[in-house]
């Protein structure tokens, strides 16, 4: 089989396309969350080293960039079940598969970049908690501002997936 034929066979298989979409949503958004939570965690360790009592409010801030990965998993799962990838489904058309693939992109990349950005804000917020623990609520709100765009991406991805007829 030549490479061209290989591409055609993928492009004409709805389930493979939908599978790529499910993987992208879970993987790319997950990478974002991992980076974001990791970055915030490093900042958190520094603050907790100074004052272990701040663990609670630091942990909340560290968790915030983690939601994008969950949103990605959510969309990945919805796509996979819609395309019958979890077993027991019938084959879907190439067009529907492509639609599902595109539907995964908002949460994949919206999630990736917003989680990274949110991780930075959370890390700064954690530094703020180190200096002024009484203001941790404000640090949380700053981080939540970023998450708005992950929520919007999740919403649109879901609406798109929901709209695909299989």
């Amino acid at each position: 089989m030549r490479f061209y034929d290989f591409l055609v066979s993928i492009g004409s298989n709805g389930q493979i396309l939908a599978g790529i979409g499910a993987v992208l949503a879970t993987l790319v958004a997950g990478i974002g969350s991992a980076l974001g939570v990791g970055r915030a965690g490093q900042a958190g360790a520094a603050v907790v080293a100074e004052d272990p009592d701040k663990f609670g409010s630091v942990l909340v801030l560290q968790l915030l960039p983690g939601t994008q990965g969950i949103y990605g998993l959510l969309i990945g799962f919805v796509i996979a079940s819609k395309a019958g990838l979890l077993g027991g489904g019938s084959a879907i058309t190439a067009a529907a598969g492509l639609q599902l693939l595109f539907a995964s992109l908002p949460i994949a990349f919206g999630g990736l970049l917003s989680a990274i950005a949110q991780g930075k804000v959370a890390a700064s917020g954690i530094a703020m908690v180190g200096k002024r623990p009484e203001e941790s609520g404000k640090a949380i709100i700053f981080a939540v501002m970023v998450e708005t765009y992950a929520v919007l991406a999740l919403l649109f991805s879901f609406l798109m997936v929901n709209g695909v007829a299989v």
Binding site: L73, F77, L154
Partner: peptide, 17 residues
Amino acid sequence: YARIFALGLSTGVIGLV
């Protein structure tokens, strides 16, 4: 306010997962 919908959906679907 669409976030109300999105977060509600996320709880439900993750539970389903």
